[in-house]
Every structure is written in structure tokens, then in C-alpha cells.
Write a protein that binds this DNA or RNA. Structure first.
Lengths: 147, 147
DNA sequence: AGTCTTCCTACCAACTAAATAGGAATACTG
DNA sequence: CAGTATTCCTATTTAGTTGGTAGGAAGACT
């Protein structure tokens, strides 16, 4: 599994948003505090203009909502316990398992290699089990992969 | 998880070697029939000169042994039931899970993102469980991921 | 000697990821 | 209604990897 810089940054940014919103005293469901892109970039060492493109992806995927203007910024659309690592990965990355760029479930094998497709599907399922069960809230409370 | 062309070709080539050796009547442990690179390339539609580099990797990893000359070719060093998909992947690819190119277990996180490292390790373990339990023999008998 | 085959190195082309720059559109402030 | 802060969006540059090719050198058999 290859975690791209985009995916890595996206997760770190989401965690930073969740943390900032939670720590400023408003643990309510959706809204929370608005966090500026610049402060996310600084707290996690992410190039600002690159981060902005990532935040855009996250917004389009419905994980963040944003507000422009002087007191603008970003906030989670759902509480951290309802956003999984898999949600974030899929928002920026597309398919999680791919064979030479094409999704694992449509790899064209023939002859003696036919069984390979099932292996990739099994791998995909195993990965999904981990990343879909782990939420941002889990990560923030530092028990990363509670069974 | 991204399966590169190299990894994909390597697996298909190994399966083709295992199949050719098994079907010519010598199901003995090590040796088997020697299969030429050219016939592997043809049976699985792999560019020959690209395949040769891959076969070299597999040989250096101890999965194949080769013989030059007129009746040369490649053969498995172990029976198909003792070679896992993971063995082949690691032979051509290095680490299975990597974050931005560096191995998952040494990703440098700080602050609120500390927990991410454990997620990648969990993913790595989940993938390993699948690819290390599936052998070439499993794939050849078409019951890909028997639990 | 003469083939046949693996072995090895160097190289090229295309693509993707990563990062940058610059400008709209939008929202609040006074 | 100007002015400013900020998100939003697109185009471009840069660097690295991947996929693939070419051309021999080394070994093995006839």
C-alpha cells in the first residue's frame, strides 16, 4: 500500500481540524470552530498552497465545510467519531487497491494467472477493514487500532 | 495498495513457471523443468526484455534458479506450495506499505498526527496476512484465498 | 568455432506526484 | 460602499518513478 503525500497530508489536516475544533470548547456535532488553512499548514508542516488543493478535495467529498472571509476557515461536517481514515483516503485517492493504475476488481488476467484477481480483492477487503474501522476520534485519543 | 507492473508481471511469471514445470510430469521438490524467458513472455503477454530484469530480481531473491545455454531457462527453487505471494512481492518491490516512499514503520509524525503510524502498521499487518498465506499452489488450484 | 540463452548495464520516454504562482470570488468590517 | 482578509480555482513548473528498449558480455551445449 502506497500512502501518497496527498493522502498523508489530508489525514494530518483532518486531525488538526478535529483537534482545534474540539479543544476550543465546542464539542458539538457538526459546526465547531473554524480553522484557517494557514494554521493547519503551520501546525503540521504542510506547504500552504498544496494544502489548499487538498482541502478542496475534502470539501468536495463532503468531509469539510468552509467559510470565506475574514473569520473564515474549515470545519468538519461530522463529529470525529463518524469520520474514518478510509473516508479521508477515498476522498483524495480514489480506489485503495489498484493494479497498474486500474481498480483491482477489473484487472484482466488470463490463463494461469486468473486467481490473482481474487488475491487483490482479498487484500482490498483487509485494508478496508482496518481503515474503515479507525476513526479520527480513535486517533486523537491515541488508541489507534482498537479491535 | 498499488500493484506495480513489475510486481504483477513477477507473479504471473512465477505462476507460469510453476505451471509449466508441474504439467510436464515432474512434481518433484526443487528442480523441475527449465522454462525459457521467451515462452513465459509469450504465454502471459509480457515484454521480453522487461521480463528479463524481473526474472533477475527473482533469482537474486532466491525464488528462481536459472541455467544458461541452449537448453537453459528458469525453474522454481522450492515447490509452489512453499512460495507465497508475499515472497514474490517483496522480491521485486521492497516494503509493502510505504508512506511517501519511506517504509511505514519509520514515518515521522508529530503532534496530533502521532497515531497515524499505528494505522499504517495495522494495514501492513493485514496485507501481510493475506499475501503471506496465499501460495502459488493455492492460485494454481484456483481457490485463491482459502482461510 | 558457433549458436543459444541467460546475464547485466545503460538509456529513453511517458507519466504522475509534489509544489508554486497568480488571480478570481466571497464575506465581513468600518 | 470601499477595503481587506480569506477561501477558491486553474495553470504551470519541477523532480522522480515507472514502464520499456537496446546492445552487448558471459556462460553452456553441439
Amino acid at each position: 500500500m502506497y500512502i501518497s503525500a496527498r493522502a498523508d497530508y489530508a489525514l494530518r489536516a483532518m486531525l488538526a481540524v478535529a483537534d482545534a475544533a474540539g479543544s476550543t470548547g465546542d464539542p458539538a456535532a457538526g459546526g465547531g470552530e473554524l480553522v484557517k488553512a494557514a494554521s493547519l499548514a503551520e501546525s503540521q508542516d504542510i506547504p500552504l498552497s498544496f494544502l489548499q488543493g487538498i482541502l478542496l478535495d475534502l470539501r468536495r467529498a463532503g468531509l469539510l465545510h468552509s467559510h470565506r472571509g475574514t473569520e473564515g476557515g474549515y470545519a468538519l461536517t461530522r463529529p470525529p467519531a463518524e469520520i474514518s481514515v478510509g473516508d479521508v483516503l477515498r476522498a483524495v485517492g480514489g480506489a485503495i487497491t489498484s493494479v497498474r493504475g486500474i481498480p483491482a476488481d477489473r484487472a484482466g488476467y488470463h490463463g494461469v494467472a486468473t486467481g490473482l484477481r481474487d488475491v487483490w480483492l482479498a487484500v482490498d477487503g483487509a485494508i478496508a477493514l482496518v481503515v474503515d474501522r479507525t476513526t479520527l476520534a480513535d486517533l486523537l485519543s491515541d488508541r489507534a487500532t482498537a479491535p
